[in-house]
Amino acid sequence: MIEIINLTKHYGEIKAVENVSFSVNKGEILGFLGPNGAGKSTTMNIITGYIPSTSGTVTVDGYDIMEHSREVKKRIGYMPELPPLYLDMTVTDFLDFCAQLKEVDKKAWKSQKDDIMELVKITHVQHRLIRNLSKGYKQRVGLAQALVGAPEVLVLDEPTVGLDPKQIIEIRKLIKALGKNHTIILSSHILPEVSAVCERVVIINKGKIVAVDTPENLSKNLTDFTKFRMTIAGPEKRVKELIQQVYGVKYLEVQNTGKDDECSYIIEADKDIDVRKPIFHKLAQVGYPILELRSLGLSLEEIFLQLTTEEREVN
């Protein structure tokens, strides 16, 4: 649906985006992740045709953004970081204006308008001036604006920034629901957001892509060991010895649980060797029961930090 090839944007000496290439499939929710100032907004502004790129191409549904910008713009609903709202208009007037601006068929708009307002839950504030709405509602009107004309692609730049936790959860749910019949690019610097909503993640840092994968794969591939936590009843010293004897165990850390006869152990082992079974057998022989076994995957947060800091070291 969206193809981005070798996208580059320079502001004089500053390279805001460099050789960024990725594609978004139809119906996919793609997370665009990176620290502040990584080039997320610049990339999104280029995809939506707000600013031109220095070099590289963007095609949406087969149309090039530079050559057929009108066709591309018809297919994209964009919600920039600062929702573009006319504060002196009421919600309905503003949405009507957007529909005219986007050349939505008048009859189609009549039925669409109520659906959109229902979806983002702004029906009850429709006759109020946008100026008087709270931040959360302004954000929703901004989202409603992007939905006008039922575009196939939605580009959302940090849609939950500045909202309270309850609103954030609501907006995320909404985006997930929208993902059923839209192709969505969503940018964020908040990691749980991306892992909660997106099917695929593009991590960008200092204008360059550092990783593209599903959140799960990212966490799998980036680690060359498996990590889990075991709580075992038995004397600490003896248990520690037993575990260390198992082939494949690379690292062991003991955490006290506060109870006399049991301890927690953080175990890291080679990725290819399953050490859980031998540990169980060993402990069973001497009668020390395993009370808890939990796998500790690398969280997206750790991956993110790892990727973006590694990049820094290279530079």
Binding site: K73, Y78, P84, L85, Y86, L101, K102
Partner: peptide, 14 residues
């Protein structure tokens, strides 16, 4: 100032 320029420019109008 309001960021509505983005809305206008990214709409299908010249």
């Amino acid at each position: 100032k309001n960021g509505t320029e983005v809305l206008l420019v990214t709409s299908p109008v010249d």
